[in-house]
Design a protein around this nucleic acid. Structure first.
Length: 427
RNA sequence: GGUCGGGUGGCAGAGUGGUCGAAUGCACCGGUCUUGAAAACCGGCGUACCGCAAGGUACCGGGGGUUCGAAUCCCUCCCCGACCGCCA
């Protein structure tokens, strides 16, 4: 959510920002409603004040007739207040709906426009070059080495589910260990989070838990939802809390399963592991002071680069355009890994995403920080970034590390956990 | 799943219808004392919103109700703890 004062004072800028982001919001209407609401609020407070005075005086009055008269007066004042309150609630509901639909402000350097306007910032250490032999895609490689059972997944849970098997299981665990080791070395606190969360938390983080186009699975007869990312639970972890400024920045990394309905994704490139209903992810999350968040955002992006450079996978870094940022992000960097088996001659595919959400989520989740010796509190900034989304990482590893003879070389950084140097070839 | 007990300020913990936004302790901030520190003592110290200020309004897990007035009574939901049952 945005700062209400800022909306009232910079209506045109906020409107322009919404337009740039492709979000239809009538900011002017909001401002109109909000000023009406404020006026009513003041009247209500005045009536409450008078009614409170009357109530207090009754406690001191002994005379019965006077008490009766005062009670009547008090009742009337409260009735007047209730009427105005009802009117205000109505206006507040409409204003609130507009308010909640407003996306975050945007970093001045984010490219303006639709997805196509996103800008490549740089590339990884490894070049996306031709492998020099006819490549297999990860589905073919997985089949050859008996690594993933898509049919069994479909039989058991439906299309979009799968069983990891044999070395794929080891790869999943190795990728978790690899990411965790690296992040813990950078001071991140490791967590394994719940895979379910309350609707309120999902909304606070910026997800829409129920409704026709939701990406979220929800549990019937309950307020619980399967999480789409540990960003949800890590944000929820500190909801309603006041953090000591001395503890900032606070960096966490959480492992969770991620569940996504992928409603509306039919027809998009979705063969194999690329777009699935469940996967495991190691997620970075940070709470920072406002002046620290930009640096933290860059640091998240650098860590993602280190992780994929370490795996030997080529990638490019994208500065996401305004039209593709979603609601909470102020700025977003994606890593797109080279996937040799994708499309006709290989394509880039998103493997990570790092967002600076500034105070948008912390306002909704009510996460603040306090400076020792100073009065009041401030909203923290929150950031999230993918360390490793396991399914897509496995996809990228299989396709990039395949050899002419069909074997797959295990990235050296993972070998100590996988326990072997290559998959296939009888070794 | 069952029974009982609880949810109050950063923490601990009083408060069962009216001068309660809330005792007290700890923590924290300022001061006295001290070569310095500690201790002791004195003072201050919740959050949000409105207001130049004085001040006001709201908030004692969430929502609703009773009342002139609710932290306090009633309903409901959520959460936490203990014990029992079941179980990886």
């Amino acid at each position: 959510m945005l700062d209400k004062k800022n909306i009232l004072e910079n209506t045109d800028l906020v409107q322009k920002n919404c337009d740039n982001r492709g979000v239809k919001v009538n900011v002017g209407r909001y401002v109109e409603l909000e000023s009406q609401r404020r006026a009513l609020q003041q009247e209500i407070e005045e009536l409450s004040r008078q009614a409170n005075l009357v109530s207090k005086s009754i406690g001191k009055t002994q005379d019965d007739a006077e008490r009766k008269e005062r009670k009547k007066e008090g009742r009337q004042l409260r009735e007047q207040k209730d009427e105005k309150q009802a009117a205000m609630d109505c206006i507040a509901a409409e204003a609130g709906a507009i308010y909640r639909s407003m996306p975050n402000l945007t970093h001045p350097e984010s490219p303006v426009g639709s997805e196509a306007h996103s800008r490549e910032l740089r590339r990884g250490e490894h070049d996306a070059r031709s492998l020099g032999f006819p490549v297999l895609d990860h589905v073919e490689l997985a089949e050859q080495h008996d690594l993933i059972d898509f049919e069994g997944g479909a039989r058991t849970a439906g299309n979009g589910f799968y069983f990891l098997k044999n070395e794929a299981v080891l790869l999943e665990l190795a990728l978790q260990q690899y990411a965790l080791e690296l992040l813990m070395g950078e001071g991140f606190v490791p967590l394994i989070t719940p895979d379910l969360a309350r609707g309120e938390i999902l909304q606070g983080v910026g997800f829409i838990p129920r409704g026709p186009e939701t990406q979220i699975y929800s549990i019937e007869n309950s307020d619980l939802n399967l999480v789409a990312t540990a960003e949800i639970t890590l944000g929820g972890l500190y909801s309603g809390q006041v953090i000591d400024e001395d503890d900032l920045p606070l960096t966490l990394c959480g492992i969770s399963h991620c569940f996504r309905t992928e409603a509306g994704a039919a027809g998009r490139t979705s063969r194999g592991l690329y777009r699935v209903h469940q996967f495991t992810k190691v997620e970075m999350f940070a709470f920072t002071r406002p002046d620290q968040s930009e640096q933290m955002h860059n640091s998240f992006c650098d860590l993602e680069c280190r992780i994929f450079d370490g795996l030997g996978i080529p990638y490019r870094v994208i500065d996401i355009a305004t039209g593709d940022l979603g609601g909470p992000a102020y700025r977003k960097f994606d890593l797109e890994a080279w996937m040799p088996g994708r499309g006709d001659n290989g394509e880039y595919g998103e493997v990570t995403s790092a967002s600076n959400c500034t105070d948008y989520q912390s306002r909704r989740l009510n996460i603040r920080y306090k400076t020792k010796g100073e009065k009041g509190t401030h909203f923290v900034h929150t950031l999230n970034g993918t360390a490793v989304a396991i399914s897509r990482a496995i996809l990228a590893i299989l396709e990039n590390c395949q050899q002419a003879d069909g074997t797959v070389v295990v990235p050296s950084v993972l070998q100590k956990w996988v326990g072997k140097e290559q998959i296939g070839g009888g070794i």
